[in-house]
Design a binder for these strands. Sequence first.
DNA 1: ACCTGAACACCGTTCAAGT
DNA 2: ACCTGAACACCGTTCAAGT
Lengths: 212, 212
Amino acid sequence: MSLQNEVPAKPRKIPVQSRSEATVEAIFEGAIQVLVESGPRYLTTTRVAERAGVSVGTLYQYFANIDGLMVAILERHLRKVIDRVVAICAKQHGQPLSAMTQALTDEFIDAKTERLDVTRALYAVAYDLKGLELIEQLSERSVDAIRDMLTTAPDVAVDAPDQVAAVIHAAMAGVVQIVLGKAGKPTDLHALRYHIRHLVLGYLTSLGPSAR
Amino acid sequence: MSLQNEVPAKPRKIPVQSRSEATVEAIFEGAIQVLVESGPRYLTTTRVAERAGVSVGTLYQYFANIDGLMVAILERHLRKVIDRVVAICAKQHGQPLSAMTQALTDEFIDAKTERLDVTRALYAVAYDLKGLELIEQLSERSVDAIRDMLTTAPDVAVDAPDQVAAVIHAAMAGVVQIVLGKAGKPTDLHALRYHIRHLVLGYLTSLGPSAR
DNA sequence: ACCTGAACACCGTTCAAGT
DNA sequence: ACCTGAACACCGTTCAAGT
């Protein structure tokens, strides 16, 4: 049939023997390698299977199709980043706005640059997948955490915290995506941290800093 | 040979007869249609050729390969947006910072949303192409225009205007990309304009507004 | 329970042949 | 000068057959 199918997520089969756990892990590893070395256009079932040391048939036992594999890889990465954002937000409850901002933006950049090559490779994967409610669901968790943090700031009352949190998330993710997306130069992380911090903090104060 | 080739740009042949001008136009049209209706994963030579009413061979007369076609489509779109940014920046020389900001951010969003479906379809195309010095070259024009505008602001002196202009460009492009990327809801453009304006203006003032 | 690999439809690209 | 479409290597996906 045509390619015009949905994008199914996750392993279609849950490993019950330890042998297959190793297989799934090998597939992930192989996929990441192909992705980083050759880019998303070369992430083919053949190549991944070869790298992983399994046959194509095996790959299809765990992933509904190549998009399913892409989604699984992307999800893994996003979960790691979002988990860190959620954690840091919880930890900053009650801190002054500037401290919140710095902690949040620094943590976000740290998480995204821990494996910079993988992050870069995955930007393309993310956009290749249409729909992508997965990403929206995950970033919703992040937006919620940011909003909940903002409402506990002792020095400022943020209006419409839902919208504001969404903008902050988009600003961080968007700028980092554009800046890290540049394959060439090595990226000045110190400067990036500084500017994103001011972007977010400036935005928050510019909205009308209702002193509390 | 392998797919591991460079991404060549532009038509390999310049149309000299009016017949072929029409052919190139038809190919572009067909490609945009496929892209918008089915997404970047379905942008195949077969489909584009069929839509355009030409044979695959003809397509290859004007584009070195499928990536070349993608680049050409993307470039067309980016040029339109960047041209508008460059023009508005020139027009705002000498205006106060807040007026500059509003003009710039509004114009950017206008340009990106004029053909929202096409814009969305092209985000994926952009990331599919590795390297992409094209995009960097084009956005450099935009960054330069923003910097040149900023240095003429009568009310504020911006430090390190090069870096700042790059951040502003990335912030606008990044946020718009993330927000418009969400396929679901219709996007509240009015709110988007408002928040991006404050994001950029807040950033600029937060950097330390050296009153002039 | 898990793995293999041949089989088939489809895509990218080329090129000899046409007008 | 421009266009066609069969040909070939390769990719996604399936499934009968193996352990």
